[in-house]
Structures are given as structure tokens and as C-alpha cells.
Amino acid sequence: MLTYLIRRVLGLIPLGIGITLLCFVVIHLTPGDPAVVGTDLNPKISLQARQRIKEFYGLNDPLPVQYGRWVARVARLDFGRSLADNRPVSEKIAERIPVTLTINVLSMLLILLLGLPIGIVAAAKPHGVFDHATTLLVFLGFSMPTFWLALLLMQWLGVQWQWLPISGLQGLGTDSWPWWERGWDLARHLALPVFVSAFGGLAGVARYMRSQMVDVLQQDYIRTARAKGLPEPRVLFDHALRNALLPIITILGLSVPGLLGGSVIFETIFAIPGLGRLYYDAVMARDLMTVMGLLTISAGLTLLGNLLADLAYAYADPRIRVGGQGG
């Protein structure tokens, strides 16, 4: 297991270099020097002063040197200061991560809780009524503009019937409430964003689970289990499910960038102060430092997600970690 872990982590190094290189290239494609933005229109700043600023930030050094210095700082999670409010970018990101992470973890749980059973039941009777209904759900899930779904839910559940709050994470004047009422208030605020962000992924997982189960159910060991007279539920859950579940782990790891990207849209709609909203605001304000920091962090989170998925897979399936160079 340890050798497997080491091999996996070493494999991340070239990806890390690629990610930081791409981020760095994007900064330098941007018109205007990052450190001179905000001073170039100021007549009080002389050419010499601007030169000193450039020198101070090391902008006169060759690009590879600048890249090396930037990566060294990124490795210590130092992304410089925001061009919008001069606060350290890492601090701004750190205070937003819990919100986005909570919503994404909750929506992942919802996806698994609903998607896996739907896929299993659909696969148990291929081409039955439930299977066809699942196909319809999958098509809807892949074709639904989630921001429209959010607008519809806001329109009916929020505005028309007033069942759920439609923006932010906290009601007005709830600070003095006891913790259980504040918890209930938070849950009500989270309901719509979590449901909306889970919707598309739900279809994907249900479909994947279904095809995985259908495949496994055609294996010889399933026929053996049925032939020796095991009841169908035991065949499904003890013999088929365990093997069909394995690839789902990889899918979960791969879904990280999609969830982060999707958070831009629903955090903007529901006015939730998370990473997606921070990114949107930074892009709109041309706050390059924050944009670069978030791009790097989001790619880093994806790597982390893939690594965790690989490790979980290796833990669950001994063939992977013993299998040598495969994968």
C-alpha cells in the first residue's frame, strides 16, 4: 500500500508543474503588468517610481526566474495580495472554503443517497417501467440548465409559496436565536442550493450505477449465486453491489472540478459567500491575484480528489495495489 501511495504522489508532480505553468502563462498573457495596474493612470507616479515598483516585485527578471519564485511561494500557499482590497489571497480563500465544501459534500451525499438506489433498482429489471423512468430522468438531468431549475424553484418554493428562503445562508436577526433554531434556519437556506447542485450529478451517478450493475449481473459468479438458489436480494446486494460500487469511487473523484465550476452559478444565484462567488467577483473586478490563486487552488483540490479516490479504490480492491505497474 505504501509503495502504491508513493507512486501515486510522485505521479502528481508533473501535473502540479503543468497546472502552475498554465496559470502562470495566463497571468502573463494578460495585458498590463500585475504590479503596475492601478498606478499606470496616476500622473503622480513617475517613470522612475514605476521602475522601482517593478524592481521591487521582481518584474524585470527573466520569466523562468519569476515562475520559479511564484511556484516557491505557491508551495507555501502564498498567493500574494488581492488587487481589490489588498488582503492576502490565501486568507480570502480560506474563509470561503468551508461554505463551498459543506454544500458540495452535502450534495455529493444526496447524489449517492438517491443516485445509487435508483441505478440499482433500474438495473434489477432492465427495460422495466422503472428503468424507462430512470432513462427519462437521466436525459432531463443532462439537459437541464441548473440555473433555470434554481430560478423555477425560487419562483415557486421561495416567492409564491414562501416555503424556503432564496438567498444567503442566514435569516435576518437570527444571531440571538438558540443554536437549534439557527441550525434549522441554516438547513432551510441550504436546501435549495444543495438540491440544485446535486441535480446534474444525480443523473450521471444513477446512469453509471445502472450500467455498472447491468454489467456485473451478467458475470458468471452471479449466475452461480442464482443457480445455487440464493434469494435475489442477496444476489443483488451481497454479490453484485460490492463489485458494481468500485468504479463509483473514481467517478466521485472526477466530479470535483464540475462541482467547483457549478458553484459559480448557484452561489451567484443564491447569494452564497463561497469560492464560486469569490471567483466570479474577482473576475468581474479584474482581481488577477485572486483569480490566479483560485485557479491554482481549484486544480489542487481536483488533484487531491483524484488522489483520495485512487487510494480509496486501492483500499477497496486489492487487485489494484498488488497489480504492479497497471493504471
Binding site: P257, L260, I265
Partner: peptide, 15 residues
Amino acid sequence: DVMLCFPTFFLLLAI
């Protein structure tokens, strides 16, 4: 692989 690490929507907005 590197391109796939970035959330597509993040890249889109930046560009």
C-alpha cells in the same frame, strides 16, 4: 490531464 484539472467554468470566466 492538466486541462481537466481546472473547473471548466473557472477557465471560461477567466478567458
